[in-house]
Amino acid sequence: MSMDETLYCPAAPRWLPWAALLLAAAVVALVWWQLGTGWGLAALLLVPGLFVLPVFLPNSGFYAPVLSRWAGAGQRIWLTIDDGPSADTPALLALLGRHQARATFFLVGERAAARPELVRAIVAAGHSIGNHSHSHPQAWWWALGPAALSSQIGQCQQQLAAITGSAPRWYRSVVGHTNPFVAAVLRRHGLRRVGWSARGYDGVAAEVPTVLARITPQLAPGAIVLLHEGGRPGQAEAVLDGVLQAAAQRGLRADIPG
């Protein structure tokens, strides 16, 4: 079995969310008819929430297939680093090189356009890159419509392809959110959505020991680890160093899918 086959994430039928929505509407109507207005209104408020919840669950495949673990990885983990390129990138590349580790950098298109030399350095060092939107509109990503999602993902894809000569194959949702319109865009660009199984919330204010205490228990064969560039000076490098040391102590090697 090839590595690509172990990472295959079968898509749910395209009609499934819409069929589920029609079924939910029918259930609401039935409850209203059988139990009266009070219960009908309660169902009307509850049922839509069942369709909103998957939007905010990073590893939910309800609206688009998602990889949350690296199947068939053996004693390897997949390090994924979001939100670059940034001033942290050179230090992270140097650290990965010292540990003979590889990672996937999920890049923001606008930031890549401002620092194309760092994008090329990532690829030259043997790492892979992924699509993390064009401008990272984190407050509204979950609510974007088809045109806006297509523009955000498409512009990033074009920008990264122009810099490296090859379009990315991996995609990570902004803040992990998704909605009913993203699957079609990913299919059009041949992208696979990547979630995670280990995170330390380093993207929010947190001390390095606290971040590592959250991630380390989740380090296991096939783990997909979520890390971030940015934050306080030196934070991203310290977190990455701690993760690599903890992985080595467990006999795990950081690598990327082929």
Rank of each mutant, 00 (worst) to 15 (best):
A143Q: 15
L144Y: 13
G145R: 01
P146M: 13
P146H: 13
A147W: 12
A147V: 11
A148F: 08
A148G: 04
L149Y: 04
S150P: 08
S150D: 13
S151C: 14
Q152A: 10
I153A: 10
G154C: 08
A162F: 03
I163K: 06
T164D: 08
G165S: 03
G165F: 00
P168T: 01
P168H: 01
P168D: 02
S173H: 02
H177L: 05
T178P: 02
T178M: 00
P180E: 11
P180L: 11
F181I: 05
A183S: 10
A184E: 09
V185P: 08
V185S: 11
V185Y: 06
V185W: 10
L186H: 03
R187H: 14
R188V: 01
G190S: 09
L191S: 07
R192I: 10
R193E: 08
V194R: 08
G195L: 03
W196S: 12
W196D: 10
S197F: 14
S197N: 14
R199F: 13
R199P: 15
G200Y: 06
G200K: 06
G200S: 09
G200E: 07
D202G: 15
G203D: 14
V204M: 15
A205K: 15
A205M: 15
A206K: 12
A206F: 07
P209T: 09
L212N: 13
A213H: 05
R214A: 14
I215C: 03
T216C: 09
P221N: 08
P221D: 03
P221S: 06
A223W: 05
A223K: 07
V225C: 05
V225F: 06
V225G: 08
L226I: 00
L227T: 08
L227Y: 05
E229L: 02
E229F: 03
G230D: 12
R232D: 12
P233W: 03
P233A: 11
E237R: 07
E237M: 04
V239H: 00
V239F: 04
L240D: 07
D241R: 03
G242A: 00
G242P: 04
G242L: 01
G242R: 01
V243D: 00
V243M: 02
V243H: 01
L244G: 08
L244P: 10
A247Y: 08
A247H: 13
A248E: 14
A248M: 11
Q249A: 15
Q249N: 14
Q249H: 14
L252N: 14
L252G: 15
R253L: 14
A254R: 11
D255I: 08
D255E: 15
